[in-house]
């Protein structure tokens, strides 16, 4: 389902394209709280802190860890297939209950000592046509 004109989120001196998302385990039984994640066209995949995987009930080390590189250095991440639900943003900027978009089978890389929620290309952004309107400070994810 496409997402039209999702507002940028003001953060400090800048406003960024970010989405309220809720991650679920592949079984769909365990879900996170709404998390505000950056839409990052420079990220190869989706990256979340390792604690999120534990919250979802994943055995973190049941998969082969992979080395990742980011702007802050190298790290270790464990990919676990998850579900990403994009939530509506209410007028006050908080997340609503309506799921605008449901993306299944996303390999989310859970990063040890990770400090960011990032939505990247592999199996998430590559499912859409991303349109960013910096003038109006909105963005769209279209099929």
């Amino acid at each position: 389902m496409p997402i039209h004109n999702y507002p940028f989120t003001p953060m400090g001196d800048v406003a960024r394209p970010m989405l309220w998302v809720r991650l679920s385990a592949e079984t769909g039984r365990k879900k996170t709280k709404p998390l505000l994640a950056k839409v990052d066209t420079g990220a190869d995949a989706c990256f979340f802190p390792a604690d999120v995987a534990i919250e979802l009930g994943y055995e973190l080390r049941s998969v082969e860890p992979v080395m990742i590189e980011s702007s802050t250095g190298q790290g270790t991440a464990m990919p676990h297939t998850s579900i990403v639900d994009v939530l509506e943003m209410l007028p006050d900027g908080s997340p609503g209950e309506i799921v605008l978009c449901h993306v299944a089978r996303v390999p989310v890389y859970f990063v040890e000592n990770g400090t960011s929620f990032l939505l990247g290309a592999k199996s998430f952004l590559d499912q859409f046509v991303l349109k960013v309107d910096y003038r109006e400070q909105t963005f769209s994810l279209e099929d």
Binding site: M11, G12, T32, L35, L36, M89, G93
Partner: peptide, 27 residues
């Protein structure tokens, strides 16, 4: 953070990373 927020017993909450620039705006 999860543990802390649950301990506060404030009901439902959402989670973000605090900006480094010092001010958080909401719409």
């Amino acid at each position: 953070l999860l543990e802390a927020a649950n301990r506060l017993g404030v009901g439902d909450f959402s989670i973000i990373t605090a900006p480094r620039q010092g001010v958080l705006y909401s719409h």
